[in-house]
Design a binder for these strands. Structure first.
Lengths: 319, 319
DNA sequence: TTGTACGCGTTATCAC
DNA sequence: GTGATAACGCGTACAA
């Protein structure tokens, strides 16, 4: 009995011969260890929680991609994935997750910051990994794309193609990734010795509509190109450009961020910086498990982003 | 000890006075029953599984809406919601869900049919509720909107507004809901004594792109109106109409289905039949719990759909 | 290397 | 109405 437990869990101290016999019998009996009993004895549920915040109901492509890849990553490691819905202000629900041992740890998307109940998780002894940085606290474990470098690469791609006067549409002020992307935008300008025209930086909020609205402002200022700090806004700009008979990329080039745009025959393929979703998910899940096991985990893990070429950046350098 | 268990679970056989004292102490100690122990003793995990199939990775608005509402519905009943990702053909993962007692039951979206592993759930002793009908089997418990009636209402709304020549774009053949919506389309015609022109019925697949492509076919046949059997396709039609300078609803009226279109300032508000997501989710969760508890549940529960007026249906009746 | 016995936290079954 | 006590199924020290 004890031998079986050890054998099936891959621990040593079992005669190889006996081990194999145990494995055979287990397979024959289609034996599966009971999760509840295992948890009760071992103290771990092998379930991780995931909270995406309100926003995911609005069906952002970013949220959906994150969800799918995290589900896969968790499944790969035989971990269950439990969805923690936004409970409004009814923190009793959160309270339960914290204290009844249903989950070993929680992955929190930065989209959820602002929903006050997130803080309860971060303040609790429950291991947590944030995907995206927290605006106020730097004592939390974070996994994210390297927003500043990626944004810098995006803008430099525009410079490389001969653009000089580059507009930008930012995300909401509450989002750290937006700040970093803006920092990358400035950094690219510095490197190329080009001054930023503050008038070309428009405040958006990552929504489709805010890109659409920002478009008019920007078009009037006649930039060479626009850096939309996410794809949702980039599409808002594309839409407005169509209506206003502005040719993209003929008149203005456009680069987005996230590469979450569905690349179908219908949609204009926007050039964008790829979110390495699969990698983010894997690192996040793996790190969370490490935390659960009491191991050390780097406080901030930033992943590289690649450029995804679409059809919205024109090469002016030769012209 | 036993009294505490009874008191906290609301069972009778406890002196009211003692019951209150127990409650007080429990609150004071911030006591939360341990889920693993409870499951081990009671045999129920209070976790339900949800599988949406591949498609949800493609981020259909329908899938996202379903996910959000089910998460809420489960949470309301203190049930955990576990996401069961499409494991490809690696059925070992499914096998685990079936045999390790992690979930008490599974909610399966009709979007997932075709992924063979769904059948494993349906064939297993694990209680299951499908959202949307299964194409081949009628021995499964189903919760869904009443597709036929809703589709009939949609088409009759067009009739009521003076349209007579009504085109349709269907979903994929594998989807029962598409068949039923088509049946409703025919039924509406019968009721009004109008013959269906088979040329006006175009096969789509619920994708944005298929609506876009079907649009050209339909525009050429000069219908009064079009019934797109979901909103994704309806938006493909809107997009194509813009490009072709077809005025909606000036030249052609349009009605969709699902009402999953984001109703922002950017998007044309398409008239559509509302999916009662919250109700579907509630009924599904409640029914699943009932099944887990061994109660009887109606084999098919169909919910009503309301018309959501947008700006894509013109009234020709007075003209 | 093997097997025995205990504990995990709760519910359910009984005598009282 | 109350309170011991036995499961529930597994991991794991500890003794053999």
């Amino acid at each position: 009995m004890a031998a079986a437990s050890r054998a099936l869990n891959g621990r040593d101290g079992v005669d190889p011969c006996v081990r194999q016999r145990i494995q055979e019998v287990a397979d024959e009996l289609r034996y599966r260890p009971n999760r509840a009993a295992r948890q009760l004895a071992g103290g771990r549920s092998s379930i991780i929680g995931l909270t995406l915040g309100n926003q995911f109901l609005v069906s952002s492509n970013y949220a959906t991609a994150l969800l799918g890849t995290i589900a896969t990553a968790a499944s790969t490691r035989a971990e269950g994935l439990m969805l923690i819905p936004d409970s409004g202000e009814q923190n009793s629900s959160v309270d339960n997750f914290l204290h009844d041992g249903m989950v070993d740890g929680v992955i929190i998307s930065a989209m959820a910051v602002g929903s006050g109940w997130i803080e309860e998780f971060l303040d609790s002894p429950l291991p947590t990994i944030m995907i995206g940085a927290h605006p106020d606290r730097n004592d939390v474990h974070v996994v994210d794309v390297d927003n500043q470098v990626a944004a810098r690469d995006a803008v430099e791609h525009l410079f490389d193609n001969g653009h000089r006067r580059i507009g930008a549409v930012t995300g909401p002020r509450s989002r750290v990734d937006s700040h970093r992307r803006l920092a990358g935008y400035y950094q690219a300008h510095e490197r190329h010795g080009i001054a930023v025209d503050p008038e070309l930086v428009i405040a958006g909020d990552y929504s489709n509509a805010s890109g659409y609205e920002a478009a008019d402002d920007l078009f009037a200022k006649e930039p060479d190109a626009i850096f939309a700090m996410n794809d949702d806004m980039a599409y808002g700009i594309v839409k407005r450009a169509h209506e206003q008979r502005v040719d993209i990329p003929g008149d203005i080039s456009l680069i987005g961020f996230d590469a979450t745009n569905p690349r179908g025959p219908i949609n204009t393929p926007v050039t964008s910086m790829v979110q390495p979703f699969a990698k983010i998910a894997n690192v996040a899940v793996q790190s969370l498990i490490a935390l659960v096991e009491g191991k050390e985990v780097p406080r901030e893990q930033l992943l590289r982003s690649e450029l995804q070429r679409g059809q919205t950046v024109r090469d002016r350098s030769q012209a």
